[in-house]
């Protein structure tokens, strides 16, 4: 099932299927390891459209709500 990162539940994992942001942002995300095909876990989300904390590789990254909204994950 394909889901936006924002809509995933806490603790859900999946492979990133698509990242629909502009190229600049894509490159930035990629440099942090967030790229198509990577395994990603949603760890937390701040209230009121706050940032999302994801686990990727062995580390954690915080992503703004707007970005997390355009990351599609196959779970």
């Amino acid at each position: 099932m394909k889901k936006r990162l924002n809509d995933m539940k806490k603790g859900q994992k999946g492979l990133i299927e698509d990242i629909k942001v502009d190229l600049k942002m894509q490159l930035k995300l990629e440099s942090l390891g967030i790229r198509k095909g990577a395994l990603i876990e949603k760890k937390a989300k701040m209230l009121g459209n706050g940032p999302v904390v994801v686990g990727i590789g062995n580390g954690e990254i915080a992503l703004a709500h707007e970005v997390a909204n355009y990351i599609y994950v196959e779970i």
């Binding site: 942002m25 930035k28 995300l29 942090l32 940032p51 904390v53 580390g59 954690e60 990254i61 915080a62 992503l63 703004a64 707007e66 970005v67």
Partner: peptide
Amino acid sequence: TTLIMEIPP
């Protein structure tokens, strides 16, 4: 810009 930040342990 938007927040994209590594969070160290």
